[in-house]
Computed example of a mutant assay.
Amino acid sequence: MDRVLTSGGAPKDPADRLSEELQSLKSSSGLTYARISEHTHYAKSSWERWVNGKQFPPRDAVERIAAVCRADERHLLDLWSQAEACRTQAAAPGVAVRASAPAEGDAGSPDPRQVALWSLTVLALALTAGLARSVVQGRELRRGTLPGGL
């Protein structure tokens, strides 16, 4: 594995190298974040965070930008794998991890709006089931056929 050094002489973080590659790809392609977003189905705000190194991109996003920019996918995925390996090692107990909140449009992170929608759907189904049961019990009570001899 080749080691890229920063001006201080320390090896560059693979995530930083990946970010630099993504910046270079974006610049050389001439595409805006909005155009990349249209071609990859990830939010332009997510691309801005990934390209500028504010957040680590999902593998699928790296594959997609390589295809859109007609870049060497294998090289980008090698960088992504190295960075992911470092992140995984850093996640070991007792080691600090570079924080990164789930981003809007990320394939691997749940969209808060989607979570809220699912929660409301489950709540509506539960309320509907409870109401239906109450209606049935009310009818049975009026008829005198409530189970349990009440």
Rank of each mutant, 00 (worst) to 15 (best):
M1N: 05
M1L: 06
D2G: 02
R3T: 10
V4W: 01
L5M: 14
T6I: 04
S7R: 10
G8K: 13
K12L: 11
P14Y: 07
S19N: 04
L22Q: 03
L22N: 05
S24V: 13
S29M: 15
L31N: 08
Y33V: 03
A34V: 14
R35F: 05
S37T: 06
H39Y: 13
T40I: 07
T40S: 07
E48F: 12
R49Y: 15
R49I: 10
R59C: 14
R59F: 10
A66Y: 04
A67F: 13
V68Y: 02
V68C: 03
A71V: 11
D78H: 08
D78Q: 05
L79Y: 01
L79W: 01
Q82K: 10
A85Y: 08
A91L: 11
A92S: 14
P93Y: 02
G94F: 09
V95G: 02
A96F: 07
A99L: 04
S100P: 07
A101D: 01
A103K: 11
E104W: 09
A107L: 14
R113M: 04
L117W: 03
S119R: 14
T121I: 01
L125P: 02
A126C: 03
A132Q: 00
V135Y: 02
V136E: 03
V136L: 13
Q137V: 07
G138F: 11
L146E: 03
G148P: 00
